[in-house]
Design a protein around this nucleic acid. Structure first.
Length: 598
RNA sequence: GGACCCGUGGUGUAGCCUGGCCUAACACGUCUCCCUGUCACGGAGAAGACCGCCGGUUCAAAUCCGGUCGGGUCCGCCA
């Protein structure tokens, strides 16, 4: 590989003492300038490295004066002689540190205004200004390395997929609105007034159609668009998935294909140690019961147990009532939790309340004795029994939740996560992968008093048609799975429902008529009537994966040009108004809300 | 839609709780001058902020109160 061009003979990371004596041409940015009166040192920077230039008075007035004019981030090209540095002047921090260039001629290609923040060194300006000047922020070494790493990771994925005989196919960006799921980004059609394209939330239907077409194994580094509010692990609007689908497979085949890739990516692209491989598999039900969340962080071992039977009929009304109302009482064992301060416990109580609990009862084991605000209701015998059942030791804490099963599990799950934070249990050197399997097919929607799909409506119900006809829908499981890394959902996936009759029945249970299904998913359903192979796949979020592997606080850093937390592009000023002419062509009339916030 | 946090020269911070000595401090950057071996060069000097904005309380507001705007985090939402 050479980076030689018409303008330069070498890049700024190339020269060594072997080239001493050669005349070279370099070009790049002025990283720093050190003026010593009779000699000026310039660190010339490009993507490949930094090379020190010297501008000397004795070489000539013209060149020396040009050196005097240089300022940070000017773009220059120079011609000069590679010279060895005196032994005691070698800079061990630079790969080019043994040499420097004595500049004989130079030209300023481009000047630079006063910078909004410094480029040499760390980027520590606030995010708002860094996003506005993203092209400058991207000059920082850290971000350049990050994008380079991103490219390498995606290249690795592509090679892995091709090695396994997957074909990458580009599916449409302008497609149709899908009525389920997230909000769509809509694109008005000029040729068909009043009609809209939608940007794909995922290439879901297309990849299934490719299976019907017989491609057997498809993948795509697929842009996905969802118009939902961002979070620190959710980039606003757009993100990338490794979308993949396989034919003639069962769940196990998908696992065997994707798990080795995740292991390789962890080893190749992070310094984390994989805690367990093959990845442990946890049913959704067990995950909720034991960790209180469907994306458990298994780097730490805090567990929730069911103590309903133990406390049934006890003197504590909250517990007794929960069980009388068909609820449960759950107990979270936090090793080392007795040292939590009052205000930390208040914080944990807030977490529990925020996810639906009425409060947070607890037992702290201090000086070998359990102590609790509720021990007078529980009594010594029951308290000791609860402590013993999980083998809690001196210094531990037990937290209790009581009420409806899912809510109780979830609230203790949040307490579990917050406790791990307080105890510093989230070890960045560990990679705890796991599969969460057997998601329920349906869930009950209390507000609308109806049954909804709990995840992907295109998943195959376990037990097929027989299960749909005979079972309580809320008990039916789907061939639907996620995989999780350190408490982040990296991917969901499923074995799909490829049989039209089962599809109609599955939708019927969720309240969709035959006609509605035809109308909304007609393309796919009709395809399934023409010889559809059993198929399944998954779609790991690659930005999310990189964020977790590289311990980024915000997913925004993973993108070259991220949007801010308000879903705007601060550099391009998107979104923005368009011209009347454009609107007219599209037959769009804009009706602004009364409170006009730009 | 809701809750919480933040806003001080170009950048990052201190000061705010406990109003007055703030005519706002420090570091980096910028500008001028000096310096021939630095690499976060060094030295001397200078410019640059009505403390996001509006209003209130007070003899007195960066500081207290209300509103508003901007940014961030979380909940809702994300099949």
């Amino acid at each position: 590989m050479t980076t030689k061009t018409s303008i330069r003979t070498h890049d700024c990371g190339a020269l060594r003492k072997e080239q001493v004596g050669e005349t070279v041409n370099l070009a790049g940015w002025v990283n720093t300038r050190r003026d010593h009166g009779g000699v000026i040192f310039i660190d010339l920077r490009d993507r490949y490295g930094i090379t020190q230039l010297t501008f000397r008075q004795e070489v000539g007035n013209e060149i020396f004066e040009l050196g005097n004019k240089l300022r940070n981030e000017y773009v220059i090209k120079i011609s000069g002689t590679v010279t060895a540095r005196p032994a005691d002047m070698v800079n061990k921090n630079l790969v080019t540190g043994e040499i420097e260039i004595e500049v004989k001629s130079a030209e300023i290609l481009s000047t630079c205004e006063n910078l909004p923040f410094e480029i040499a060194g760390e980027s520590n300006a606030n995010e708002e200004i860094r996003l506005k000047y993203r092209f400058l922020d991207l000059r920082h070494r850290r971000l350049q390395d990050l994008l380079k790493r991103r490219d390498e990771l995606i290249t690795y994925i592509r090679q892995y997929m091709h090695k396994n005989d997957f074909t990458e196919v580009q599916t449409p960006i302008l497609t149709n609105s899908s009525p389920e799921g997230a909000r769509d980004f809509l694109v008005p059609s000029r040729l068909y007034p009043g009609k809209f394209y939608a940007l794909p939330q995922a290439p879901q239907q297309f990849k299934q159609l490719l299976m019907v077409s017989g491609f057997d194994r498809y993948f795509q580094i697929a842009p996905c668009f969802r118009d939902e509010d961002p979070r620190s692990d959710r980039h606003p609007g757009e993100f990338y998935q490794l979308d993949l689908e396989m034919s003639f497979v069962e769940q196990e085949d998908v696992f065997q294909m994707i798990e080795p890739l995740m292991i390789e990516l962890t080893k190749e692209f992070s310094d984390k140690t994989i805690l367990q491989a093959p990845f442990p598999r946890i049913t959704w039900h067990d995950a909720m019961n034991t960790y209180g969340i469907d994306k458990p962080d298994l780097r730490y071992d805090l567990k929730i147990s069911d103590v309903s039977e133990m406390v049934a009929g006890c003197g504590f009304k909250v517990f007794a009532d929960a069980i009388n109302n068909n609820g449960v009482v759950k107990m979270l064992h936090v090793t080392g939790g007795a040292k939590f301060t009052r205000s930390e416990i208040d914080g944990l109580t807030e977490k529990a309340r925020a996810s639906g609990a009425n409060g947070l009862a607890y037992i702290l084991i201090k000086d070998g004795k359990p102590a609790s605000p509720i021990d007078k209701y529980l009594g010594e015998e029951l308290t000791n029994k609860l402590v013993a059942t999980v083998g809690a030791k001196d210094g531990d804490a037990l937290f209790f939740g009581a009420g409806e099963w899912l809510k109780t599990c979830s609230s203790l799950g949040q307490v579990r996560i917050a406790s791990a934070d307080l105890l510093g249990l989230k070890d960045p050197k560990k990679a705890a992968w796991c599969w969460v399997i057997d998601f329920p097919m349906y869930e009950f929607n209390k507000e609308e008093n109806k049954i909804d799909f709990s995840h992907n409506p295109f998943s195959m119900p376990q037990g097929g048609m027989k299960a749909l006809v005979e079972m309580n829908p809320l008990k039916i499981l789907a061939y639907q799975y996620d995989f999780v890394l350190n408490g982040f959902e990296i991917s969901s996936g499923a074995i799909r429902n490829h049989e039209p009759e089962i599809m109609y029945k599955a939708f019927e249970i969720a309240g969709y008529s035959h006609e509605e299904v035809d109308k909304r998913f007609g393309g796919m359903i009709s395809a399934f009537k023409f010889g559809a192979p059993p198929h399944g796949g998954c779609a790991p979020g690659i930005d999310r994966l990189m964020m977790v592997l590289w311990d980024m606080i915000s997913i925004r850093d993973i993108y070259a040009f991220p949007k801010n937390g308000k879903a705007q592009d601060a550099m391009m000023n998107a979104p923005s108004e368009v011209s009347e002419k454009q609107l007219k062509e599209l037959h769009i009339a804009v009706t602004l809300p009364k409170i006009n916030d730009k």
